[in-house]
Design a protein around this nucleic acid. Structure first.
Length: 519
RNA sequence: GGUCCAUUCGUCUAGUGGCUAGGACGUCAGGUUUUCAUCCUGGUAACAGGGGUUCGAUUCCCCUAUGGACUACCA
């Protein structure tokens, strides 16, 4: 009974605790879609639970800093519709939100750990450690910087206090390492994977504080998560192996650890391994949300014509599912349906075809006027323009056959310009000896019609075809050939209605002249 | 090599100690259409393997295989 009560109280506490989650990328380049998904799941979880979504920049590695990356990350989240509650731009009560701005604080905490006896100063050079590592590999042994090894190295555990203190005073380079306990089973819980047990003897003395005066990830994120009162850490699976260290550090500091959820990775569409920039280039789809303009440039979903809603919807379903058959979700619906428990355990292979399908679905839901505005830009680039209302009519005609706004041009080019050539295959199949004569007759019929709307023209022409005993297919295909130049496009009467009577008659003349002579 | 994680149609996935193992994308075949596309209908296709536990395992346990991550003074 007592145990149950404890569990109940514990749950009660966890539930009552203000949900605060963070997305914590390091600004080392453009944000990969795997990173966007991590941000998304954090965001969905926060909003679902009435919590706060924090963006923290983890720039403790000065050697990997990339100009423009921080702005890129913020722009990406913004484009995706992921709203940051606290961050570098937004501010907040738990700042600074850029880790390099608080290096002094991290140092204090590292020293605190030394005072507690759970960390120590180490003076061995990287070169020396590298040599040791190579040596043990050569002799078939697993290199492990553990309690055994540290006995033989130069650090504040093996040196006398006055010795290492004088080293510090002389300004000798040092790092601070965590003193990993010997042979202890660490039990911890992952929200997605359940309980995991790891023995500390397989872990090593990780560096917490580097000789350049910056903390490593291990120190910085734990201190920051604690200071920022993070309730749930939702991050990539690559962190799972170091979770025991993190759990141990919370214990050393005497802090309550947040709850953890490790997300499965995004995998390559074909073959093996995790998704990388190369795959996108190779397979022709973007791996980044936005175009990356620096150095080695990279394509972005935005520039490829994806709607952010479709992109987010696609990403949300890659590794998570609602347990229902619903596939199309607005951001609000995602928030409402989201739960960590329904995130899958195994990696997801990215599927570019399905991404397209999502965009198709979203394009169908867009209003014609919205699409017309976007299409107009593309049209201008092609050297054409038209009245916005006419463009809306046009879009209605081809909307359902395209997945991207930029596809509209390929479906409508012949609306704007008469065919310059005729598809040879189609001509062979559909242009008969009497086609020229029939089209001349058709032209005469069309000349009699003043109202050129499809609704008026269609019945008249159909009646004429029937009256003359022509084959509908034969007439209409030849007609299509001279108007479009190929056997494609929407309903014929919609096309001629849109391009108008004059243009229609002109194209018939041109077609008859060119095709009758050649064939 | 060591540690950890994972494994249902080609892909994303649902699912249960007993089901014809469900859906979506793709693919294939029909249908609609004056063309192409869309659309509609239907088909194809999966529980990695081997041991247990059990009356019965895709489901629970173990082993193997495969894949992945980590193994930096990178995050």
């Amino acid at each position: 009974m007592f145990v149950y009560l404890c569990i109940y109280i514990n749950r009660f506490n966890n539930n009552m605790k203000q949900v605060r989650v963070r997305f914590a990328p390091s600004p080392t380049g453009p944000l990969h879609i795997g990173g966007v998904r991590t941000a998304l799941y954090n965001y969905l979880f926060a909003k679902k639970n009435g919590g706060t979504f924090i963006l923290r920049i983890e720039d403790t590695d000065q050697t990997r800093f990339v100009e423009g990356a921080e702005e890129y990350i913020m722009e990406s989240l913004k484009w995706c519709g992921i709203i940051v509650d606290e961050g570098v731009r937004e501010g907040g009560k738990f700042g600074p939100y850029r880790q390099s701005d608080k290096k002094e604080i991290f140092k204090q905490y590292a020293e605190k750990l030394i005072d507690k006896g759970d960390a120590y100063y180490a003076f061995d050079t990287p070169e020396k450690l590298e040599a040791l590592r190579n040596e043990s590999e050569r002799s078939w042994k697993t290199f492990n910087y553990n309690s055994e090894l540290r006995e033989n190295l130069i650090n504040s555990l093996t040196l006398k206090e006055d010795e290492w203190r004088s080293k510090l005073e002389k300004g000798e380079p040092y790092v601070i390492r965590y003193k990993m306990p010997q042979n202890e089973d660490i039990h911890f819980e992952d929200l997605i994977r359940g309980e995991i047990v790891v023995n500390t003897s397989t872990l090593d003395d990780k560096v917490l504080y580097k000789s350049d005066g910056m903390p490593t990830y291990h120190l910085a994120h734990i201190v920051d998560d604690h200071l920022m009162e993070i309730s749930h850490v939702i991050r990539g699976e690559e962190w799972l192996p170091s979770l025991p260290l993190h759990i141990l550090m919370y214990r050393s500091f005497g802090w309550e650890a947040p709850l953890f959820a490790h997300l499965p990775l995004l995998l390559k569409p074909d073959g093996k391994g995790k998704l990388s920039k190369r795959d996108g280039d190779k397979m022709g789809f973007p791996v980044f949300p936005l175009y990356w303009p620096y150095g080695e440039t990279a394509k972005g979903y935005r520039e490829e014509g994806y709607f952010p809603e479709a992109f987010i919807n696609m990403l949300a379903l890659l590794g998570w599912n609602p347990g229902t058959e619903q596939e199309i979700f607005t951001m609000d619906e995602l928030i409402n349906a989201f739960s960590i428990e329904r995130v899958g355990k195994s990696g997801s292979r990215f599927d570019a075809e399905k991404a397209k399908w999502f965009n198709h679905q979203y394009l169908q839901k867009k209003s014609n006027s919205e699409l017309a505005k976007e299409f107009r830009e593309i049209l201008r680039a092609q050297g054409f323009n038209d009245d916005i209302v006419r463009l809306e009519i046009l879009i209605e005609l081809v909307k359902e056959r395209v997945s991207f706004v930029k596809d509209i041009w390929e479906q409508t080019d012949f609306f704007f310009k008469a065919p310059e050539s005729y598809d040879q295959e189609a001509v062979k199949r559909r242009w008969k000896e009497d086609s020229g004569v029939i089209l001349s007759e058709l032209k005469s019929q069309l000349e009699l019609i003043s109202d050129f709307s499809a609704a008026t023209v269609e019945p008249v022409i159909k009646a004429w075809i029937e009256e003359r005993g022509y084959n509908t297919g034969a007439v209409m295909n030849a007609f299509r050939l001279v108007i479009v130049g190929a056997l494609r496009g929407p309903h014929m009467f919609d096309i001629i209605s849109w391009i108008g009577k004059n243009e229609t008659l002109k194209r018939i003349d041109t077609g008859i002249n060119l095709l009758s002579v050649e064939n």
